[in-house]
């Protein structure tokens, strides 16, 4: 039940874009086409799941025993940065096709605040190892859902006659706002049953 709550919460209710404001830069930057958005989404799911696992281990087997919790930010960002590098190398060796699909997105992920965000949230929420991984995956899936929907909407703009001063970021932000209004529909979902 806890896992279902984490999954529903991560994807729909506390969506990283529409309610937590995490990972906005790639959301706005890599959403011009559905293909690139889904590539980025896959890469983010992969890295966030892995980062949740690794940072959980770091937190509970290194930082807590050594009473170095205040080093959390430094430790986590270094781990995430090297993790992304490592993943990039492994994928390049193991599966060139996958590397073709995800390669260009991986370096962008280090500075995606959703990755560090989920690592820190896993600690503040006091999740166990599995719950942390589930949370990382679900949050990333929610992020991916958001960027896919947004890319679909954005592809239609090509035909629109948007006022000059609103083109680019302004219209992207207004659309995201309207999407987050729609996502209000999920507020309170399964309250009393799962939450």
């Amino acid at each position: 039940m806890e896992f279902i709550a984490i999954i529903v919460g991560g994807i729909f209710i506390n969506n990283y874009i529409f309610s937590r404001f995490l990972g906005l830069c790639p959301f706005l930057g890599v959403s011009k086409q559905i293909e690139t958005a889904s590539g980025m989404g896959m890469a983010v799911v992969f890295v966030m799941a892995l980062a949740s696992a690794v940072t959980w281990l770091i937190q509970h087997f290194i930082l807590v025993p050594l009473e170095l919790e205040y080093m959390q930010t430094v430790a986590f960002i270094l781990v995430i940065a090297s993790l992304v590098q490592f993943v990039e190398m492994v994928i390049m060796k193991v599966s060139p096709e996958l590397y073709q699909a995800l390669g260009i997105y991986l370096p962008l992920i280090t500075t995606n605040c959703a990755v560090l965000g989920v690592a820190i949230l896993n600690v503040t929420e006091d999740y166990g190892f599995l719950a942390a991984v589930v949370n990382g995956t679900a949050s990333a899936l929610g992020w991916t859902l958001a960027i896919l929907l947004f890319a679909g909407i954005r592809e239609r703009w090509v035909f629109n006659d948007i006022p000059a001063s609103m083109q680019g970021f302004p219209i992207a932000l207004v659309s995201t706002g309207l999407m987050s209004i729609a996502f209000f529909g999920f507020q309170g979902l399964f309250r009393g049953i799962l939450f």
Partner: peptide
């Protein structure tokens, strides 16, 4: 929504 729309 207020955040996104106002910043836009």
């Amino acid at each position: 929504p207020g955040a996104f729309v106002s910043l836009g």
